[in-house]
C-alpha cells in the first residue's frame, strides 16, 4: 500500500520535504514502517530512533498497525512551551 508521512522540524529539514510517500506492505507495524523510512532516508536514521509516530493525530506504539488511509506523522521529541 502507498502511504504518506508528515515530517516536522529536524526531520523536515533533513529530508528537505514536509511529506514523504512510501510503498509498504499492507498492515505494516509502526516499528517496521520506521525502519523503512530510515532505509529510504538514512540521514534521518538517528532522529527516527528517538521519534514517536502518530496515526490519525494520536500517538501510536511500535506494535500499532498502519492502515492505508491513516494520517501518519513522524513526531520527533517535542519542545513546545
Amino acid at each position: 500500500m502507498k502511504i504518506q508521512i508528515k515530517l516536522f522540524a529536524a526531520a523536515r529539514e533533513l529530508s528537505d520535504t514536509g511529506e514523504i510517500g512510501l510503498e509498504v506492505a499492507d498492515g505494516i507495524l509502526v516499528k517496521d514502517m520506521k525502519q523503512e523510512i530510515s532505509n529510504a532516508y538514512p540521514k534521518m536514521s538517528e532522529l527516527i530512533l528517538r521519534s514517536a509516530v502518530s496515526l490519525n493525530r494520536e500517538f501510536a506504539t511500535d506494535e500499532s498497525v498502519v492502515r492505508e488511509n491513516d494520517e501518519i506523522a513522524l513526531i520527533p521529541p517535542v519542545s513546545g512551551g
Binding site: 516536522f8 529536524a10 532522529l47 500517538f59 506523522a73 520527533p76 521529541p77 517535542v78 519542545s79 512551551g81
Partner: peptide, 21 residues
Amino acid sequence: KIQVPIWKKEFWADGKTEWVH
C-alpha cells in the same frame, strides 16, 4: 512539553541554528 507536537528551533548568537529534540 511531552504530549503536544510543537517544536522550537534555537538561533544562536554565533549564527548556528538547532532544532530542539
